[in-house]
């Protein structure tokens, strides 16, 4: 009997290992967001992260600076982990400091967070790894490695003085309500050509200087994949309404933001790495049906969306 239980333990631990290994590929399966930000009362200021000059010159300061460098030049400094041409700062403007551009001071204090959907507690490291799997279409760096450590230190420092476990105004992208008559991809194309082409290009390809991208690709093989939060039209609409065009945020109407977000997110991009048994419909049911507003696995103008791109 004793021997038996020993074997059982061995078997169990083996199974457990296998499970850990499988989960290792994608650390955060579920990309839905934890509680959204409350509305900001007029006259109330957004949380303000510390200034550069406040950072100490010691080992901690060095790690924070390393995190900041990785945050702005992610592709160049972590080429093994970034599979496309995206950098953290592309979606988190002003080095992760800007309100309504999903600032790090809004994200870091919300973790660890239990989420019913995947029935587990997610750590901040896992959340960062999720970005590498989906938004960067890459391979997440190890949770205890220097990349995640540095990005965590940078986020922690930006959150200096922020309350923990309390959703702050300015957190996330503050999504505008969906248009009453629904969004329209064709109207979005008109907005895109007028407002976005100058930087992101006719085919969403972005623009580079030297080998590095200055304006990120919005679709195609070098952009975020079908599992990234930004593939949700509601999320992209929030980012766009508050932040685009650069320096002229909050000039597009809510409807324009939704329409152009739909136009961007109707285009093909790398496949969702969670693809279930190679089947788009199964993947849609499991991961996309309940994930905000998105076009994955649907048919638009007779074309199946979500086929992926290599």
């Amino acid at each position: 009997m004793k021997r038996h239980s020993k074997n059982l333990v061995a078997l169990l631990s083996l199974l457990l290992c296998a499970h850990v290994f499988a989960a290792d590929k994608i650390k955060m399966e579920d990309q839905t967001q934890i509680p959204a930000a409350p509305n900001k009362l007029s006259g109330v200021k957004y949380f303000s992260p510390p200034e550069d000059a406040d950072l100490q010159n010691n080992a901690f300061g060095d790690l924070v600076r390393k995190g900041e460098a990785l945050f702005v030049n992610t592709k160049a400094l972590a080429p093994l982990n970034v599979g496309n041409e995206m950098n953290c700062v592309n979606c988190h403007l002003d080095r992760g400091r800007k309100a309504n551009s999903s600032p790090m001071w809004g994200a870091y204090p919300m973790y660890p967070a239990y989420r019913k959907k995947n029935n587990k507690v997610n750590t901040y490291a896992e959340r960062l790894q999720g970005c590498f799997s989906f938004s960067m279409n890459g391979t997440p760096p190890p949770a205890d490695g220097e990349i995640i450590l540095a990005l965590t230190a940078y986020s922690y420092w930006l959150s200096t003085g922020a309350p923990t476990a309390k959703a702050l105004p300015g957190r996330g992208f503050d999504e505008p309500p969906p248009p009453k008559g629904g969004f329209d991809v064709a109207r979005g194309k008109v907005v895109y050509e007028k407002q976005c082409v100058i930087c992101h290009g006719e085919n969403g390809e972005g623009k580079k200087v030297g080998v590095n991208y200055v304006f990120p690709p919005l679709w195609g093989k070098d952009s975020y994949n079908w599992g990234a939060g930004m593939h949700r039209i509601n999320t992209a609409a929030g980012f766009i309404q508050h932040n685009m065009p650069l320096g002229r945020g909050e000039t597009l109407s809510d409807i324009e933001a939704w329409d152009v977000a739909a136009y961007v997110n109707v285009h093909e991009r790398p496949q969702d790495p969670r693809l279930v048994e190679g089947d788009i419909e199964k993947t849609r049911k499991r991961f996309h049906a309940d994930d905000g507003v998105n076009l994955y696995g649907t048919t638009v103008n007779g074309v199946l969306i979500g086929q992926g791109i290599k």
């Binding site: 403007l93 002003d94 400091r97 800007k98 930087c199 623009k207 200087v209 030297g210 590095n212 200055v214 304006f215 650069l246 320096g247 002229r248 945020g249």
Partner: peptide, 19 residues
């Protein structure tokens, strides 16, 4: 950014070499 002024290099490229 508090006045919605992006860094110049964001559009004019690293070191302002043009894009």
């Amino acid at each position: 950014w508090s006045k919605n002024i992006p860094e110049c290099t964001l559009c004019h490229g690293p070191d302002g070499v043009g894009v």
